[in-house]
């Protein structure tokens, strides 16, 4: 006797004959819910070729064509639910928010450069000059436009602040340890680059150390260039503020701690304040000038 579980129901077979079946009605929603809730075991390859035949035999559908159209409707319904669930994940929101911040930063840089050029132009044309030039119609509209341009940049940086507050809020909720060690924004960037907190938690520290340095990493792997010391974590004040000769060691230590923090966050969500103190202590030790006694 064999029991086979398919998307449209459970069928019991004895000597290749259907003896019992529990097949749902052609209700798309109910079938999609079943796909989500039930556990399905592997089934024998010989039954896999008989799905259509069995469904028709059990009067679930009158023809192969109807089999496909029902299956398709159920699959589309289920896929939509899965997609909605994936987008509802807090990681997705954090990734989009930090992406927004990075885009705004880039835009502000661009626009600020342009504003500087406009400033210079205005300064030059407002100098005393002959009459024909002061009647340039541009002179009346130009400062107003420039003012509005500057205001847009101002508004963007206000928006950036709001987004950054939102990230801080979300990061405290889903990754308290990573936030305390890396800072909310850097933590969020690491999550974004890893593709989610779970993937970050599964990464080895050595990989976290070079997230964001893939160009240098592949140059190293492909052509034997020097390996990168740090990727995104260079943004951390403890790395950036350390002397060049110590940065590699410090980046390595920090990456190790960040890996622990990400795992604590993903698997327990409890804050461990001692982690930050440990990391700072270790970095202070590394930053101490080496004495002759240390070397020997």
């Amino acid at each position: 006797m064999t029991i086979i579980k398919t998307w449209f129901g459970e069928i019991e077979l004895r000597d290749d004959k259907i003896v019992c079946s529990n097949v749902l009605k052609t209700d798309t929603a109910a079938l999609a819910v079943r796909l989500q809730k039930e556990e399905f075991a592997d089934l024998d390859k010989q039954f896999r070729g008989r799905f259509r035949e069995i469904a028709i035999h059990l009067h679930l559908v009158p023809s192969e064509r109807d089999y496909i159209s029902l299956l398709r409707a159920v699959a589309i319904q289920r896929a939509k639910e899965q997609i909605t669930a994936a987008f509802a994940h807090p990681d997705t929101r954090i990734i989009q928010l930090i992406g927004g911040i990075d885009d705004i930063d880039e835009s502000i840089n661009f626009l600020s450069e342009r504003l500087l050029e406009w400033d210079i132009l205005e300064f030059e044309i407002s100098r005393p000059r002959d009459i024909t030039e002061t009647h340039d119609p541009q002179s009346t509209t130009y400062p107003a436009l420039k003012h509005e341009f500057a205001e847009s940049i101002e508004r963007l940086s206000e928006l950036r602040k709001k987004i950054s507050n939102a990230i801080e809020f979300e990061m405290h909720a889903i990754a308290p340890n990573l936030s305390s060690l890396a800072g909310e924004l850097l933590g969020a960037r690491l999550i974004a680059r890893a593709g989610g907190l779970e993937s970050l938690a599964r990464m080895p520290a050595s990989r976290i150390q070079v997230i964001g340095a893939s160009k240098a990493l592949f140059k190293h792997l492909q052509f034997g260039a020097k390996p990168p010391k740090h990727g995104l974590i260079f943004q951390h004040p403890l790395v950036r503020g350390s002397p060049l000769s110590k940065r590699g060691k410090i980046a390595r230590t920090m990456a190790a701690k960040l890996a622990i923090a990400a795992r604590l966050d993903f698997y327990s969500k409890k804050a461990h304040p001692e982690l930050l103190a440990q990391m700072e202590k270790r970095v202070r030790e590394l930053n101490k000038p080496q004495t002759r006694a240390d070397i020997t």
């Binding site: 496909i68 589309i76 896929a79």
Partner: peptide, 14 residues
């Protein structure tokens, strides 16, 4: 999925 809604012979699976 959006594309599958317009093609009668595609079954999308996430």
């Amino acid at each position: 999925v959006r594309l599958s809604e317009r093609l009668k012979n595609v079954v999308p699976l996430v």
